[in-house]
Design a protein around this nucleic acid. Structure first.
Lengths: 168, 168
DNA sequence: TATTGTTATACTCTATAACTATA
DNA sequence: TATAGTTATAGAGTATAACAATA
């Protein structure tokens, strides 16, 4: 591509491909900045209003969906971080009385981590606020536009998953 | 909203608003996961192939657009991080010979930071690869879909900016 | 042997605050 | 006084690797 530019022998297809490249790059930068801005806002509000970080909130969100609780390794897998990190986060949340480790009958190596009643109550309140923030931050888009955006991102997500599979 | 649910007196509008809330939340989670997946891939490849982190890459990208160089405080403003961090990153890049601090004639407090020839060459190679990765990662979307996505995100961005102004 | 979970360590990014030199 | 930049410190998140207990 660079050679073609320099030698002034770009074909129409190359010109178009080149233009598309820049368009993709601009799209990516915009995608990144929109997402980061929303995420930073949410992160800041979680800290200010609930003194909680996003990873801790995410871990509680995982547990909220699983009343039976989850093992440390399952949490590690779902949050896509290594085990040591999960140990740290669970330690902190357990000190605050928001989650609890219970020994697993049948496997004395494993724990079943779940929300305490206090943790569940706290999380419900946070999640309600969190949802309101998201609605507010996405409100520049109409309902119809949000639906469109969701569909486009689904295509992107599925495509990415396929690409990952193919590269195995 | 919660009260309306419990008292079973939700109006049609409330029902719709409630559904929209969940839709917005799902949209946000999808937006976040798509962006994070792409960002993590790029971060990993930058580290593996060029031994560079995203903030360092971003700083070099800022300098690449400004052949005259930028002051530390201007870099701090553009990267939206505090001054001490910029000092650290510039220190590292300067040790590797990729950027250089030059004293500013007219203000002996300030520096003009710019890419060295080596830094420019290195960045050009990295940026080319980076652009290829972005094209690849966005390729599940057609050209037309990418344009659509870009427009939706523009609406979101402009709306966010307006909201920020209004909240001042 | 393999797996679950913990511990220890190290690295990057980040912010805050105190500080120096210059304007 | 205010500004440009540095330094010191602290805290969060992350990964890696060695380790103990159990399967």
């Amino acid at each position: 591509m660079k050679l073609a530019q320099n030698s002034q022998q770009m074909t129409d297809m190359e010109v178009r491909a080149h233009a598309d490249h820049h368009a993709s790059l601009r799209l990516w930068l915009r995608l990144l900045s929109c997402t980061t801005r929303i995420e930073d806002t949410i992160r800041q509000r979680l800290r200010e209003q609930f003194e909680i970080t996003l990873p801790r909130f995410d871990l509680m969100a995982q547990l909220e969906r699983e009343p039976e609780g989850l093992s440390m390794s399952e949490l590690s897998r779902r949050m896509m971080v290594t085990g040591g990190n999960v140990t740290n986060i669970v330690d902190q949340l357990e000190q605050e009385g928001l989650v609890v480790r219970q020994s697993q009958p049948g496997d004395r190596r494993a724990f079943r981590v779940s929300l305490t009643p206090s943790g569940r109550k706290t999380f419900t309140a946070m999640a309600q606020e969190h949802e309101d923030w998201v609605v507010e931050l996405l409100s520049p888009l109409s309902e119809r536009q949000q639906k469109q955006l969701h569909e486009l991102l689904s295509t992107l997500k599925v495509g990415q998953a396929l690409q990952q599979k193919e590269s195995l």
